[in-house]
Design a protein around this nucleic acid. Structure first.
Lengths: 105, 105
DNA sequence: TCAGTATATAAATGTATATTTATATATCTA
DNA sequence: TAGATATATAAATATACATTTATATACTGA
């Protein structure tokens, strides 16, 4: 993995970060992270409107963060890559530490 | 590091991801990642207007991604934590792989 | 204290995007 | 094929945010 910005695709980074920068999309990602779930299941679990869920799923699909699979009338979504969780975990840890360091002065 | 969303602070994640979801802010982060730099240096290197740089630096400071230090008339900004680069590196790598997997069918 | 430089802030503008509401499409079953 | 359910899309609205322009504040040296 490179950490040299010359080798990083800024547009890709921005695109992915934007997709992760919404609380409802994060909730959806976590919701489908252990197993694939139908839209209606996600709607029920997250208590958000069906069009809103569909809209966010479309964004997540466009950014390739989830995969889609139709089975009969149901459409199942699932996290596309485990690393997404690990990256979010690291970002969360960083945020914690930054806040901790901050309140100490 | 936890990858269990129950232990993650969604608000913090959203806040940090938003801050990373702008190309100019990413360029600033990389610009100050090796050494602290004054605002005018950043302006010159990135070829953006001074008020725009100041605005983004304010956001980066609010999100604790950079630290600030004044010295005389100059204000120096620097990346606050090396892990920011490593997280961006991993996100970049993920994006690459997702795209690769995508074009293969 | 005044002039010049460095940086920050405010106001104005344009654009992107989250959400809601309404409707369309797709699939299954009777 | 008609009706019911599952999902997607479109239009409308509201809000957030990036950028520009103009101006204010902070510091330094004469």
């Amino acid at each position: 993995m490179v950490e040299n910005f010359n080798e990083m695709n800024l547009q890709t980074l921005v695109y992915l970060a934007k997709c992760l920068a919404d609380e409802n999309r994060l909730r959806i990602l976590f919701c489908v992270s252990k197993e694939k779930k139908s839209v209606s299941t996600i709607v029920e679990e997250l208590q958000l409107s069906q069009p809103l869920i569909s809209h966010h799923l479309k964004e997540l699909k466009r950014s390739l963060l989830v995969t889609v699979e139709r089975s009969g009338p149901f459409v199942y979504y699932e996290l596309s890559d485990e690393r997404i969780l690990s990256i979010l975990g690291k970002l969360n840890e960083l945020g914690d530490d930054l806040l901790k360091a901050r309140v100490s002065f």
